[in-house]
Design a protein around this nucleic acid. Sequence first.
DNA 1: AAGAGTTACAACCGCCTGCGT
DNA 2: GACGCAGGCGGTTGTAACTCT
Length: 218
Amino acid sequence: MDWEKLPLYSHIITNTPVSLAKTVVEAKEEEKRMEKRRDEEEGKSHVKRGLWKPEEDMILRSYIETHGEGNWADISRRSGLKRGGKSCRLRWKNYLRPNIKRGGMSPQEQDLIIRMHKLLGNRWSLIAGRLPGRTDNEVKNYWNTHLNKKSNSRKQNAPESVEAAPLADKPVMSTEARRSHGEGEEEGTTWMEETNCFGYDNLVFDPCFALTDFFPLL
DNA sequence: AAGAGTTACAACCGCCTGCGT
DNA sequence: GACGCAGGCGGTTGTAACTCT
């Protein structure tokens, strides 16, 4: 139990006055603020923010290509980029990584996102994991800007849900897209494939797609 | 042409978890 | 068990690009 986060309760058990418990939290926050200010004054805090420049992308990409991923704080230090480790990781993961698919979502992808979201809620990384080349950030953004409205309007206008729509009406992936998603490379069928509960020939049914994705406690 | 409003998406922030010490 | 650190995640914000008036 983190008593510092529960000053109102901690004082009951430990006989610590509320004011004192609060002071501990406030003191820590003040300490953090002071430290930040000191860093800024000393010029230590020169972490760059905002949009990434092409030169920065190039540096990060070439560094990771030679040294590999992992230890992002180290990468940000050693590559000479004045970016935080987290920022480097995010930029690589969402933008620079190979096999990132950019551009608009296909109707299949859109529909899959809607269905997965219905099943999983805002578990963006899990949803993105079923969309090859798409990142959680991209899926999340796409949902917030496009599909959220769409799904709301569907709820209002159409009494029958997406699930109720006949599977035969669903668009089918192009041969090109199938190939790029590795169709024919796996042998055997999964439970998901057999039941084909999403109504697509491919896209989500990779061998790693387990029931535990939906029900992690199983 | 220009300013206001809207949209799309890149990036940041804070919290949580897992792991090593 | 406590602590610190790194990485991952979802929510939120910032901003460039676009559209409307």
